[in-house]
Design a protein around this nucleic acid. Structure first.
Length: 133
DNA sequence: GCCAACGTTGGC
DNA sequence: GCCAACGTTGGC
């Protein structure tokens, strides 16, 4: 089981929208680094859903329900995965909180905030979950 | 709205 | 293959 973090600007595609849709294909990744991570995702992996720009917080957990396939919105060589919501966090975890947490300083969110699909270690995953209680 | 950081593009 | 210029992202 691998853990990830995917970002979306809430006014583009929000957590609420995902819950209304039940599942979606995660498109719009146009970055080679992010593409590598997308293609490494396995069915059943879980990911944090992060709201960038507005909110700047992790709002929920999603799971990968279909592994990477050709992005239907483009002819170019980009991939999408299908994701479905698992559950919202009881308490959202803000970027501010993450930055204040010593054990989370190596999260990609802190190191490279621009990467839209990021790997998360098991340790980081569990720390974030503990912060969300 | 600004700007720093980063990635990509294109000229050489 | 290097690097300057440009565009985009995202935090503030």
């Amino acid at each position: 089981m691998n853990y990830w973090l995917i970002k979306s600007e809430p006014f583009k595609y929000s957590w609420d929208q995902l819950n209304a849709d039940k599942s979606t294909f995660w498109d719009g990744v146009r970055n080679y680094g992010a593409r590598i991570h997308l293609r490494a995702m396995k069915k059943g992996d879980q990911a944090f859903f992060y709201h960038s720009n507005e909110g700047k917080e992790i709002v929920g957990i999603v799971k990968i329900i279909k592994e990477a396939y050709q992005d239907p919105t483009t002819e170019a060589d980009w991939s999408v995965v299908d994701v479905a919501p698992v559950k919202p966090l009881k308490k959202t975890v803000t970027l501010e909180t993450i930055k204040k947490t010593a054990a989370l300083q190596k999260m990609q969110l802190v190191v490279n905030s621009r990467l839209s699909v990021q790997p998360v270690t098991k340790e980081e995953w569990e720390i974030v979950l503990s912060l969300a209680k």
